[in-house]
Design a protein around this nucleic acid. Structure first.
Lengths: 351, 351
DNA sequence: GTACCCTCTTGTTTACTAAACAATTCTCAT
DNA sequence: ATGAGAATTGTTTAGTAAACAAGAGGGTAC
């Protein structure tokens, strides 16, 4: 440790490689033997070289993960948790740091932008939708760094996004119920600000329309916000009417959980009196009583794909914005039974 | 030209570069100065070196483009022509040869496979859908070379595919007509074997269902095959009834052309008596009388994306199969007018 | 003190290579 | 004719030399 100033060229000399090789090691580019990399890292530590913190917080680049403030426990959330896990895993593989960033709906996105985070990050993924208005997206875009939406799309903006096949998911559950013979079907939908839930709803409606069915408005109650169990109030509303349906579609697993609670309280049996099916295939859905028939949305894969997409955008590839959609899959469990209820025009029971 | 045997090492010596460089030039890998490449190609020609024909027909790799036999003039076809143009352009950029291959529906795909084409090609794109049955796809997959579907998807098989946003396209036209006040809407759909047309149809139905509308079956005539003008017979069928709609949605531009012909023959004015809109935005659609309101499907971009996707699959990337969907856009022209027609029994607004 | 130009360093990129590797093909004693 | 070893092919990995861009420094003029 003489008077050698810590610079790339000096490290190169000390480690007996070329400056290029040192650079490649620091930026972990491919094509370096592990042992060489090891030696160079050692030399770097030895000479006390500080990797210059330009546009990133350490070595490698960083990507931002923008999530809603109100979903703070989002990492433990069953749906987004899986997505984030996939995202993080893939980030590690490609040598990115993931910088988590909250999003406060009351202040808009000014918060995020002002913190100067945008300067430190090569690209953003916006996970969880709803409160990302087109105006905010325009603001974010004005930073001219790549953005990828996850489980959200704003068609007017033509942004690259990664989605579950929500339309098909809705179509698939609905088809399933129709195939079982159900005709009197209720639908518990969600707030229209979530584009993914809207897509699911449209899938349901398309399937029903193909069977020349329309859901009566009284069987499509508006979602209520505030209640902890999302589908509970909606389901109650349906059950209070004179006639109730033979099957219910819940727009998400969580909604289904609330609805099941309401059905049980009302003294009806699932699936004998009312069949229920939903979309998400969260872990819990396999452990309800009865286990919930639902549609799998490959959450982990979506996280992986979101990072891959962002990576390519950062590399300047993928100049055509597209929706990247992962395949969904119907998971038949017990909440819809198997037999065809002979409901026809007359309800099997009345209120 | 002494006794130098034409081998990579000899070429390298003659051109005063390393064998590696020669290899890179032949396989057109990036990172070679154009002048150097030029010099090496000259030397190759000079010494009469034959690039060994392993797994490809010349230098660089090849990709197959599989299209239906009956659409032989597909290259000049307005829809697929654009896709193929994008595909070919991108192929050239990435150094692939495109091998065109017909697909005879009568013999199944045995033809393609037996010709040994599969051995010469690193991957396939299946353009144009309809007659690709799941069984054939399984056969193709058994070759274990990458496949990308264009404007077709088979959800059970989870294949990578590139699609227009057909669902949204259908949704958008329908919304447009609904926004103009139309409630009495007919729909000219296509054969269900074309998944893209099915998606468009579902988009239409979803939009209508959101407005609590169902299309009466007599306004959704079955498509007839055989007639040169696709929508002509279907439209006639509708016009022969006692009541006719105020608007017609055609599932494709071609269908719309036929329908317009039928409407004119019947002595009705477009858009005053009947509005018409469709999906495709083929070149001709701008030059009909009146110009056709339609939804643009970015065809060229789809071709580019299909090749990029195939390229990545060949590289062993993109292990998660996804639907890649390009954004569609409503193109408002004159075939729907602008005013709200006061025809039919429905007022402009319902309370 | 500060504005300006020139040089020199620092990180970065491009274009290329040495050497090892794998798969044939060739050679030659048996 | 045959099978072991040697040689020759194309291919891949792990690098490097040299050019380049953008600051940083440093001297000089005002």
């Amino acid at each position: 440790m003489g008077k050698t100033k810590p610079t790339m060229r000096n490290i190169a000399k000390a480690a007996q490689v070329s400056p290029t090789t040192v650079w490649m090691v620091i930026h972990n580019k491919p094509g370096i033997a592990p042992e060489t990399a090891q030696r160079i890292w050692a030399t770097i530590a030895n000479l006390g070289y500080k990797v210059k913190p330009t546009a990133n917080g350490g070595h490698g680049e960083s990507v931002g993960l923008l999530i809603e403030q109100n979903s703070v426990p989002v990492i433990s959330d069953v749906f987004y948790g899986e997505i984030i896990r996939g995202f993080q895993t893939e980030a590690e593989r490609l040598g990115y740091h993931v910088v988590l960033s909250m999003f406060d709906r009351t202040t808009g996105n000014a918060d995020v932008l002002n913190r100067g985070l945008a300067q430190k990050v090569s690209g953003f993924v916006v996970a969880n939708d709803g409160d990302i208005t087109p105006e905010m997206v325009i603001q974010l875009e004005s930073l001219s760094i790549p953005i990828v939406l996850v489980e959200n799309h704003i068609d007017e903006q033509r942004l690259p996004c990664v989605l579950g096949d929500n339309f098909m998911a809705g179509y698939q559950v609905t088809r399933h119920l129709l195939n079982l013979g159900h005709r009197r079907i209720a639908l518990l939908h969600g707030p229209t600000k979530y584009s993914s839930l809207v897509d699911r709803l449209r899938g349901c409606m398309a399937a029903l329309a193909e069977a020349s069915l329309l859901i009566p408005t009284e069987w499509m109650p508006k979602p209520v916000s505030g209640h902890p169990l999302k589908g509970y109030v909606q389901m109650k509303e349906i059950l209070e009417q004179t006639e109730y349906p033979t099957a219910v579609i819940a727009i998400s697993d969580k909604t289904a959980f609330g609805a099941m609670e309401a059905i049980r309280e009302f003294g009806l049996k699932i699936p004998d009196d009312i069949a229920i099916a939903s979309i998400d295939n969260t872990l819990e859905s396999a452990y309800t009583r009865p286990p919930l028939t639902t549609v799998n949305i490959p959450k982990y894969e979506m996280g992986v794909l979101a990072l891959q997409k962002l990576h390519r955008l950062i590399q300047g590839e993928d100049t055509i914005p597209v929706k990247t959609i992962v395949y969904s899959e119907l998971i038949v469990r017990e909440s819809c039974g198997a037999a065809i209820p002979q409901s026809g025009d007359e309800p099997t029971h009345s209120g």
